[in-house]
Amino acid sequence: MDGGAVLKRGRRPRRPSPAPTIAQPVLPPHAPPDVLALPQPDWLYQELTVKGDGDALWSFRQAAAGAGHVPWVHDYDALEERWLSLMLTQPGRTISLQGVKIVAREVKEAFRDEHEEACAWVGRSKAVPLDLHQLVPVPWEVLKLGPDAPGALRWLWQNWGTTWPLRKVERFSCPDGAWRVGFFSADWTPWPAIATCRLSWPTLSFDVRVRYGTD
């Protein structure tokens, strides 16, 4: 699953590149021209600090925590065909056609098993302290399109501000009356999702900062 909840005390996180995940196929997106969705996402490390009334802050924290996964509907056979096509067109390929078919099938089965296991935790797990799908759920009619369909990418861009779930979400210790998390987001800051939070919790303040280095 994407992200993870780790409590750190007294230090700012380092900025490693987020590890690849099988929870979303690594395939070129069919992004509309008005949507920022790079073929290889630029993962930006950021920190969000939320301050305000204790009851409202608790309400937000409960609403924000989730499984860190989006339950997309996938056509697994179509994905297998796409992975097969990508592998067959790799320069300098040395594996046979039969070997490529076996690898594509194994990748499909591994991806299907992990995706469906992660989907089972959506709505049940609170392991990830900041889950965009929990805060601004992707509607069923969009989930059916799949994560790299133009309509899905446009919805994510307009409602989240990023076309992937957040990665490596970490919660940090803060003084009373404040809550802080670090996370990686793909290509951009999730401003639309934060704007939705500001409307839903008007007594809280939301401050986001991009961290380009380590200290």
Rank of each mutant, 00 (worst) to 15 (best):
residue 189 T to G: 02
residue 67 A to Q: 09
residue 87 M to N: 05
residue 207 D to C: 12
residue 57 L to M: 06
residue 33 P to D: 15
residue 25 P to I: 05
residue 82 R to T: 14
residue 147 P to Y: 10
residue 28 P to Q: 10
residue 201 W to H: 14
residue 125 S to D: 12
residue 198 R to K: 15
residue 11 R to S: 13
residue 48 L to T: 13
residue 71 P to C: 11
residue 81 E to Q: 10
residue 6 V to S: 12
residue 57 L to K: 07
residue 192 P to W: 01
residue 24 Q to V: 15
residue 45 Y to P: 05
residue 13 P to E: 14
residue 137 P to T: 03
residue 99 G to P: 11
residue 100 V to W: 09
residue 80 E to I: 05
residue 128 V to L: 04
residue 156 L to Q: 08
residue 140 W to S: 07
residue 76 Y to L: 13
residue 166 L to S: 13
residue 170 E to T: 14
residue 2 D to K: 11
residue 21 T to G: 15
residue 213 G to P: 02
residue 121 W to V: 03
residue 65 A to Y: 14
residue 91 P to T: 09
residue 5 A to K: 15
residue 163 T to F: 03
residue 208 V to K: 01
residue 77 D to A: 15
residue 165 P to C: 08
residue 148 D to N: 14
residue 73 V to M: 05
residue 148 D to A: 10
residue 71 P to K: 12
residue 164 W to Q: 13
residue 134 Q to N: 04
residue 63 A to K: 13
residue 187 D to E: 03
residue 46 Q to V: 04
residue 147 P to R: 06
residue 209 R to Q: 15
residue 167 R to M: 04
residue 112 R to L: 09
residue 145 L to F: 01
residue 27 L to N: 02
residue 174 C to Y: 12
residue 44 L to P: 00
residue 113 D to N: 08
residue 115 H to P: 00
residue 194 I to C: 00
residue 70 V to I: 10
residue 130 L to A: 03
residue 180 R to M: 15
residue 212 Y to P: 00
residue 71 P to E: 11
residue 109 E to Q: 14
residue 20 P to G: 10
residue 48 L to M: 12
residue 138 V to T: 11
residue 143 L to Q: 07
residue 68 G to A: 08
residue 152 A to E: 06
residue 201 W to S: 07
residue 102 I to N: 06
residue 53 D to F: 11
residue 121 W to K: 12
residue 24 Q to Y: 08
residue 82 R to I: 11
residue 116 E to W: 13
residue 26 V to P: 02
residue 109 E to P: 02
residue 210 V to Q: 14
residue 142 V to C: 03
residue 203 T to F: 03
residue 79 L to H: 08
residue 152 A to V: 01
residue 18 P to V: 10
residue 84 L to Y: 10
residue 83 W to H: 11
residue 89 T to Y: 01
residue 1 M to S: 13
residue 43 W to I: 07
